[in-house]
């Protein structure tokens, strides 16, 4: 059987909210090392992956590897029944067709349990090799959220370029053009408020802003985000979930036809 207890249950709610619009039906792979998911969106333009480590849970038990087919929209509806300070426990039997979720209030004076019906889902798994990035940028997640939101009011696509000047985001639309350049900083009070840029080679890639905006739904999970740009490859946008794991998004670039 599988059983996992998370004191900070709101993280699970935030994670599901961060991915449910891109992927609706997904497989969660459970093993004694934790919970993993990898899924492409319906149009196969982007890929979402998360990892929740077993040691990030307050209690984690998995007797043998399980695949749970989950409708994320339905899971999100169920998680709406949990309070923001609730402790969440998930349980599934080895051959069961439901995932049981239990929400306990902080004082443990209110307990909700809900069974979510599981599904059988056919999904493709992509092998993503370790890559040598052209440029790696770490920035406050609120900064990333603001850039992609602001540029969405100018156009549908963004050119992202890394040069010795910094990282430049440029959007072009019917009403005009906009450029936002981020330079490396070191003066912020907290380390995570700084922008860090590590560039190995200049790179320029074009992406659909709609997806980059969707990735910003993970902002509540982490104060920082890492953006990896690689020549002629999908951009990778990483949010580390403190003491628990990560959610990563990959977006295929727009290419000249």
């Amino acid at each position: 059987m599988f059983e996992a207890r998370l004191i900070q249950g709101s993280l699970l709610k935030k994670l599901v909210d961060a991915i449910k619009e891109l992927c609706t039906e997904v497989n969660w792979d459970i093993s004694n090392s934790g919970i993993n998911m990898q899924s492409m969106d319906g149009s196969h333009v982007c890929l979402v992956a998360f990892n929740l480590r077993a040691d990030g849970f307050d209690h984690f038990r998995c007797d043998r590897p399980l695949t749970l087919g989950i409708n994320l929209g339905n899971l999100a509806k169920i998680l709406k029944c949990s309070g923001s300070n609730d402790i969440i426990t998930m349980k599934a039997d080895d051959n069961g067709d439901t995932l049981t979720l239990m929400f306990e209030s902080e004082k443990q004076d209110r307990i909700t349990d809900v069974d979510l019906k599981l599904m059988s889902i056919e999904s493709e798994h992509l092998g993503i090799p370790d890559q040598d990035y052209s440029a790696e940028t770490s920035m406050p997640s609120s900064e990333y959220q603001r850039i992609v939101r602001d540029l969405s009011s100018i156009g549908d696509t963004v050119n992202i370029s890394a040069t010795k000047e910094g990282i430049k985001f440029s959007a072009m639309g019917d009403i005009g053009t906009a450029n936002i350049t981020l330079r490396q900083t070191s003066s912020a009070d907290k380390e995570e408020e700084n922008v860090k840029i590590e560039m190995k080679e200049p790179v320029l890639l074009t992406f659909a802003l709609r997806y980059l905006n969707n990735f910003a739904k993970a902002t509540p999970l982490s104060s920082t985000v890492q953006v990896f740009l690689t020549k002629d490859l999908p951009v990778q946008v990483n949010y580390n979930i403190q003491d628990l794991g990560y959610v990563k998004y990959y977006l295929a670039p727009k290419i000249e036809e």
């Binding site: 492409m40 149009s43 196969h44 333009v45 982007c46 890929l47 493709e124 798994h125 992509l126 092998g127 993503i128 090799p129 696509t157 074009t206 659909a208 490859l233 999908p234 990959y250 295929a252 670039p253 727009k254 290419i255 000249e256 036809e257």
Partner: peptide, 14 residues
């Protein structure tokens, strides 16, 4: 004119 590429163009389906 630029077109949208798909994930399978970059990573192998296992």
């Amino acid at each position: 004119k630029s077109g949208q590429s798909r994930m399978e163009s970059f990573f192998q389906v296992l």
